[in-house]
């Protein structure tokens, strides 16, 4: 009897301990959660700080001359026209070269050979290229295009950007094609269409919004790339739209101007930085909404 009583008084004590333990567990959880809220706050604050700095410094330097005048020596009211055009041209050519190749590779991986050794090797290499340091791609193109053909050129810059475009398009194309149901393919083949027609007329079309998203993301990525252009198109402070000569680009001009001691050049660098960031973020948002609407 007394033993039962004794054991009955045991849990009462344990309850106090359990309550204390529970409080402690809740406190630990609250503390960790608070830290996570803080971490997210820091992340958002960083984005706001970057955008805020850009708007603050960029808008005050932004005027019509930025878009209508070419780069000039410090003190003589220049703009960024040649840099903007150079960036557009090289990005366009890079995307035009890289997209078809990336599309074909992605199609190969998704439609022709899902798990063969060759396909696995291609997928592995493409993933490595996706994250490889872009400066090394610049060095590579310097070796294969700049040295043999005797000089820096817009072509070399475009090719360097194309190499960066390829793995991005490969990844999205493969992912998007894989999302298509096999019944779709079977229906097309069942109608007697050859496989290449199935892919080009049905699969690509069905996955079009996803593939376009990939291309937009690739454009956004290469438009801001600086390092691969340093050794390929070099940058050019004079007016030149020749693809066989050194070509100006927005990121390179920003790099050169931001590090200069001249206030008007630094202001122009901020204006360029604002233009490029708005363009890149705008492309990203466009790509995302395109994918979400699907």
């Amino acid at each position: 009897m007394s033993a039962t009583l004794h054991s009955a008084s045991g849990p009462a004590k344990d309850m106090r301990v359990a309550a204390a333990l529970g409080r402690r567990r809740r406190h630990v959880s609250t503390a960790v959660k608070a830290a996570c809220y803080a971490a997210t706050g820091v992340g958002l604050l960083l984005l706001l700080s970057i955008l805020g700095t850009l708007f603050w410094n960029g808008f005050s330097a932004l005027n019509l001359k930025v878009f209508t005048e070419v780069t000039r020596p410090p003190g003589s009211e220049g703009g960024l026209l040649n840099a903007i055009l150079g960036s557009l041209i090289q990005t366009a050519i890079g995307t035009a070269i890289g997209t078809p190749i990336g599309l074909m590779v992605g199609t190969y991986l998704a439609e022709y050979s899902k798990n063969s050794p060759l396909a696995n090797a291609v997928r592995f290499v493409s993933d490595i290229l996706l994250s490889a340091p872009s400066i090394l791609i610049g060095l590579f193109v310097y070796q294969i295009l700049v040295v043999p053909f005797g000089g820096f050129s817009g072509w070399a810059g475009s090719v360097a950007l194309a190499i960066i475009v390829i793995p991005i398009v490969v990844r999205t194309t493969e992912d998007m094609l894989r999302l298509l149901p096999d019944t779709l393919r079977e229906a097309v083949i069942g109608l007697g269409a050859p496989k290449w027609k199935m892919i080009t007329l049905v699969c690509w079309r069905a996955a079009a919004s996803g593939i376009v998203t990939g291309v937009l993301l690739a454009v956004a990525r290469v438009a801001g790339e600086t390092a691969p252009l340093l050794f390929t198109s070099l940058g050019n402070l004079n007016w030149s739209l020749s693809l066989s000569a050194p070509m100006s680009s927005l990121p390179i001009t920003i790099f050169a101007y931001a590090g200069s001691p001249y206030q008007d050049w630094i202001a122009l660098a901020w204006a360029g930085a604002l233009i490029i960031t708005l363009g890149v973020l705008g492309l990203n948002i466009a790509a995302r909404s395109l994918l979400r609407r699907k």
Partner: peptide, 29 residues
């Protein structure tokens, strides 16, 4: 259709091989 298929398949495969060669060429260069 078979000819088109062969050409298209070859084009896709050679694009894949091109990516492999690209990485090899980067390392080599």
């Amino acid at each position: 259709g078979a000819l088109g298929d062969a050409i298209f398949a070859a084009a896709c495969r050679s694009a894949g091989v091109l990516v492999l060669l690209l990485l090899g060429a980067i390392i080599l260069e």
